[in-house]
C-alpha cells in the first residue's frame, strides 16, 4: 500500500500518544487498595467495608478493586497475586482465614494489611479491626424498648458467635435501661444467609406478641412489613429496604478506621495497630442511623434519652458492657 505523507504523520502522532500514555498513568499512580471478602457483597459487614472504601477511593484518589466470595482455599492465591503486584494496602475479613492471611502478610512486608479479625494485630504489617457495633446496639435496644407497646421485643440472628452475643447483650442492656420489664426474644437461624428462614423466625415472633424486631440478618424486615411490626436494621442503613418498617439501624461504618490506615500507608508509618479502639460511638464508627420516614413514631422522650446516652458514651461518661455470653430468650 502506498503511504502518503499524511499517513506517516498520523502514525507518528499515534505513536507519540501511545508512548505518552504509560508515563501519564505512572504520574497519576495512586495508592492501590484491594478488598478481599469471603462472602458475597450482600453480607452487611462486607457491604459497609465496600461502601467505605469506595468513598475513600473517591476522596483520596485511590485505586480500589475488590474480590468477593473468595473461598478459604483461594485466599492465599488472591492475596499473593496482589502482594506480587506491589499493592500498598489490603483490606478484608480474615475471620475464616486467620492463619492464611497472617502467613501471606509475613512474606510480603511491603504490603500493609488491615483485616477484620478476632485475633488482634500481628507485627509488623498486619493491623486488625473487630467489626463491633455494640455501642450503637445499646442505643438500638433503647429505641426498641421505647417503641414497643406489647413489652416484647425480638432479635433474629444468624450464627451465634461471640461477637453476635456481644452485640445482642448490649442490645438487651439498652432495652432494659429504657424499660426494666421489657422481654427480649431471641431466635437463631443457624446460617448467615437464609432469608426465607429468617422471615419465618420473625413471623413466629409476631405470633408471640413481639412488635419491634432487631434484624441482625436479612429477611426480617420483609416479615415485619407483613405483620405490621417495626424493625431496626443492623450494620448498614436498611431503611431503603422498607422505609415504612425500618425505624433506624445500628450502624457499623468502618470509614474512620480505613481512613486512618490509608493515611498511615501514605505517610509511610503503617503499623500493626489494633483499630478496634476506634470502633465506637466517639469515632463515629458506631451510631444510630437517622429515623428517616418514621421519625414521628418515636416518642420525643425516647429520642432525648437516646441522644443523651449517645453523648455520654462518646464522652466516656458511660461505658457499655461488652459481654460474650449466650443471649437467650427472656
Amino acid at each position: 500500500m502506498h503511504k502518503t505523507r499524511r499517513d506517516v504523520l498520523k502514525l507518528a502522532a499515534f505513536g507519540t500518544v501511545a508512548a505518552a500514555v504509560p508515563f501519564g498513568a505512572a504520574r497519576a499512580a495512586s495508592v492501590r487498595i484491594r478488598g478481599i471478602f469471603e462472602t458475597p457483597m450482600e453480607e452487611p459487614f462486607v457491604t459497609q467495608l465496600h461502601l467505605a472504601m469506595t468513598r475513600l477511593a473517591k476522596e483520596a484518589d485511590l485505586d480500589y478493586k475488590y474480590s468477593e466470595s473468595v473461598k478459604a482455599a483461594d485466599f492465599s492465591r488472591v492475596l499473593r497475586q496482589w502482594c506480587e503486584e506491589g499493592v500498598e494496602l489490603i483490606v478484608g475479613d480474615a475471620y475464616g482465614t486467620e492463619q492464611i492471611c497472617r502467613r501471606v502478610a509475613r512474606n510480603y512486608g511491603k504490603t500493609a494489611f488491615t483485616m477484620g479479625s478476632a485475633m488482634g494485630p500481628t507485627e509488623p504489617n498486619f493491623a486488625t479491626f473487630y467489626g463491633q457495633n455494640y455501642e450503637a446496639a445499646y442505643l438500638g435496644g433503647m429505641l426498641a424498648a421505647g417503641l414497643s407497646k406489647s413489652g416484647k421485643i425480638g432479635v433474629v440472628a444468624g450464627i451465634a458467635v461471640p461477637t453476635t452475643y456481644g452485640l445482642l447483650n448490649a442490645y438487651r442492656a439498652g432495652a432494659k435501661e429504657m424499660k426494666a420489664d421489657i422481654q427480649l426474644k431471641a431466635a437463631y437461624i443457624g446460617s448467615m444467609f437464609d432469608p426465607p428462614k429468617a422471615k419465618e423466625a420473625t413471623i413466629a415472633m409476631a405470633d408471640q406478641g413481639v412488635d419491634v424486631v432487631f434484624a441482625e440478618r436479612i429477611g426480617v424486615i420483609e416479615a415485619a412489613a407483613e405483620r405490621q411490626m417495626l424493625a431496626i436494621g443492623n450494620m448498614t442503613d436498611q431503611s431503603a429496604i422498607n422505609p415504612k418498617v425500618v425505624v433506624s439501624s445500628v450502624i457499623w461504618d468502618p470509614y474512620p478506621v480505613l481512613k486512618e490506615a490509608v493515611d498511615a500507608v501514605k505517610g509511610g508509618k503503617f503499623a500493626a495497630t489494633d483499630y478496634s479502639k476506634l470502633e465506637n460511638i466517639a469515632h463515629r464508627v458506631n451510631y444510630l442511623a437517622d429515623y428517616a420516614a418514621l421519625a414521628d413514631k418515636v416518642p420525643a422522650e425516647v429520642k432525648a434519652a437516646i441522644e443523651a446516652k449517645s453523648n455520654d458514651i462518646a464522652a466516656g461518661k458511660f461505658a457499655v458492657t461488652y459481654e460474650e455470653s449466650e443471649t437467650k430468650t427472656d
Binding site: G154, A160, K185, A186, A187, Y188, I189, G190, K197, E200, A201, A204, M205, D207, Q208, V210, E326, K328, T329, D330
Partner: peptide, 18 residues
Amino acid sequence: QLRLQTSGSVDLPYQLFL
C-alpha cells in the same frame, strides 16, 4: 423449633433447636 426458641420455655443451646 423456631417457636420454641422464641418462647423461652425450654432452656437449651439454640443449636439443639436447629
